[in-house]
Write a protein that binds this DNA or RNA. Sequence first.
DNA 1: GTTAGCACTCGACGAGGTAGAGTGCTAACA
DNA 2: TGTTAGCACTCTACCTCGTCGAGTGCTAAC
Lengths: 344, 344
Amino acid sequence: MALDERKLKILDTIVKEYIQTAEPVGSRTLSKNAGINISAATIRNEMADLEEMGYLYQPHTSAGRVPSEKAYRLYVDQLMQIFELDQLLEDEIKSVYMNYMNELTKAIEQTAALLSRITNYTSLVLAPGARSLNCKYVKLMPLEEENILMVLITKEKIVKNFVITLSAPADEAQLEKVNNVLNICLKDSSLADLSDQLADKIDALSHEEGVMLQEVIPLFKKALLESDKEVVYAEGMDKIFNFPEFADIDKAKRLIEALNKQNVLANLLSDDTSSDMNIRIGEENQVEAFKDCSLITATYKINGRPIGTVGVVGPTRMNYDYVVSVLDFLREELNAHISRLLNE
Amino acid sequence: MALDERKLKILDTIVKEYIQTAEPVGSRTLSKNAGINISAATIRNEMADLEEMGYLYQPHTSAGRVPSEKAYRLYVDQLMQIFELDQLLEDEIKSVYMNYMNELTKAIEQTAALLSRITNYTSLVLAPGARSLNCKYVKLMPLEEENILMVLITKEKIVKNFVITLSAPADEAQLEKVNNVLNICLKDSSLADLSDQLADKIDALSHEEGVMLQEVIPLFKKALLESDKEVVYAEGMDKIFNFPEFADIDKAKRLIEALNKQNVLANLLSDDTSSDMNIRIGEENQVEAFKDCSLITATYKINGRPIGTVGVVGPTRMNYDYVVSVLDFLREELNAHISRLLNE
DNA sequence: GTTAGCACTCGACGAGGTAGAGTGCTAACA
DNA sequence: TGTTAGCACTCTACCTCGTCGAGTGCTAAC
């Protein structure tokens, strides 16, 4: 059986209706819908076909039809249309990046809050890990005894602090020298390929500061690696309570639990950065707790290389058109913002 | 009517029983309880008295009795006993502070996670605001054009970064000089009484760096003030789903919503630091969303001055003895940890 | 003052009955 | 051949009713 024009139209309407109401859609409701001018009986025949094809199902015999995940997939792939955002909304998004010009970390935090507010779903934002960033400047500062503070400023305007513990108290003058060497080596380099680059450059330089430098470098790398654990900002978790699909306390519990686990979220957001926009519907999600959710994610980039992800979690009955439109715009703004920072 | 020994014993048993089971306690159950050797009928008489006095109530005529908030208050004030923690538990708590010797912020984050883990309730930890801290060292670093980064290291081993935007690009040499003056002025001083102290000291110094210094100081104060918004770490929010009192989705929703609002939590934790340990039961909480919760908080201190709060949120049917015992020990460890940091 | 006995109350739970929404099937129609 | 009206059917939501059991309050005896 083929999906002719009329079947698609009916499916499209059912999906849209169900996204709105969360109630099974009956043939009478549909036939009264503007845009569909066929009788309820005919629609019933079509719906029976669609059910046979796996696009619809009935919660029980005498209920209307509900779209299956297969239907949402079809809807997302073929039927829905991305639209231009309202001007006010665009301005609201842009203003976030205007207001946090000097600190990318804050801008990213605000992105999460914004995204949840404007979509009314739970938002997730994966901040770039250290490995995605580019070093601009490093400063070593003595704390007390063996401890030194390393302040790392990246070209993306992210500031990171690490406390490093040496084997012996640091001499201030020596620290200064090591600091200089480090800066010469690291300046403008990506933090990802630190190892090779550093080794080469340091060999090329005098071995004057040898001992201490030898010690600082692995400690720095270690600290960097630790801080590289990707941070996910999750906002609006309580929004899930607005959806009847989470009226069951156990479902709500499982989802909230998962949303509170950084490692789960980090995996969720970083496991596929191959495409710009990623929509995972229900069972398409690998993580158990998200198997009755949909997750829409978009990657943002530096020079075309993905460094982080923004995303939205909601019921499979999600407002796909709107969320995709928002994420699309948001991602572009975030890209533009970061590239402004880099070229400043 | 007076609360004689026997009534207290009965009340104590009912409270303990109800905390365990969350089920109304009947007279038969009680009379079978070891430690109470009177018949169910006698207990019924006593329970009727206790109900009249407002310590108990019945959900419905043929149910057992449930402790009122007045009963919990009595229990907390007179009946419960703090006990020594298990050695393993003490070691677990201590190890957190051993493992995060160099960064108070991390230690505090870990405290929240630990507290929720060992109590099985939601934990809240209010980190010290900037005003509670003491300056050790300040470093100004040029970023680009008008922007400079200020790194503040406190004696408590908290590192804070502020980006400050000047009216004109900063000259590096001048920045250095301003930095020196700032350090002379700020060294060892409390960040709370910054205003007066700074003004005096700066007047006493040469006006050589005048213009820039005049500009940096208010900007620094402003940044400090902004970062002074107290941060609350909340862990284990999902734990509330384990309690039947939050089986109602609306109740759960309201609490989770409140727990996600930083300002609500900050108020909750900072509104009474007069006593070391604070127990607020149900209606005693000012904030609406917490009126069917109990909140136990303990303040931690620097040199006897309260700077932050650790706390636990749960149903009014909370395991008060245990939570108070844990918080008591935890607070002492945190105090000891901070004073170690200060005297290092 | 304490206890056993007993009638009473009330919620939880399952059975049964009704209303309404929506279906599938059939037969008639264009 | 595709479309439609009509109708019997199915199933849930909701209500009521009756039963069971836990727990009570009261009374009378110890």
